[in-house]
Design a protein around this nucleic acid. Sequence first.
DNA 1: CGGTATCCTCCTCGATACTG
DNA 2: CAGTATCGAGGAGGATACCG
Lengths: 139, 139
Amino acid sequence: MWATSCGAATEADHRAREILTRVGDKWSVIVLYQLGEDTMRFTELLRTVPGISQRVLAVTLRGLERDGLVSRTVHPVVPPHVDYRLTPLGETLKETVTSLVRWTHEHLDDIDRARESYDETNGGPPRRPAVPDSDLRSR
Amino acid sequence: MWATSCGAATEADHRAREILTRVGDKWSVIVLYQLGEDTMRFTELLRTVPGISQRVLAVTLRGLERDGLVSRTVHPVVPPHVDYRLTPLGETLKETVTSLVRWTHEHLDDIDRARESYDETNGGPPRRPAVPDSDLRSR
DNA sequence: CGGTATCCTCCTCGATACTG
DNA sequence: CAGTATCGAGGAGGATACCG
């Protein structure tokens, strides 16, 4: 229903690609995965997803919330307490996300080996374009 | 096994996130999905994945090939004939990718609605940082 | 046909600092 | 605790041109 022999850029295709961009985004998948395990607070996510910055986590959560995948609950206490959890819609994605993450863990080694052998036959790992040094413009 | 309460940035986690970046990349998922349907030639993919540029398709395929997910077969004829298809490793990802794409199509409307209602309660869709208008340089 | 080579432009992400 | 504001660097991706 998608891979029609004719490659017309339908509206649905365009939208689908847009959504995939969100779902496929670097951090969204991980955050969704974590929330699939349990309801979590902001700082908890910040710790559990090491490497993510405060700002990016905030942006990511906002995006997921806007898409209706994650809900945000503020408990009016002090200090503030905010819970994030999957919405029913988010739950429908849970299995797919889980299998994606699981696949990744199961095949880390395969990919490592594939890359090694690829880099061997071709010359080394993908090289940087080699900065022309004369690129440092006025600052 | 992943969501350990302690959020130490293990090597595996780091690698896993790297792989997710590849798998979750905008175009990779779509290309993998297409190749899941059938073996395809370069130009065929170029048409079937409307919106992708020649360069980006080439880069994407190179990446997938390096990761051992896609194989490239050159038939020494003129004009050149090159086939791309999933490797056995790529096949192991097929189901997950398919369900991801299917989910996307099934929930396009849900997401649209969620965004609308979100944008309604908050002020309009996420705005651009407001281009300082004096940014429109010569074109 | 199936790519590379360049160039250039956003847009994402990270670091840092400040606030309710 | 849970964010927002600001800034700056880098990479992803598009347009275009050319090659085997």
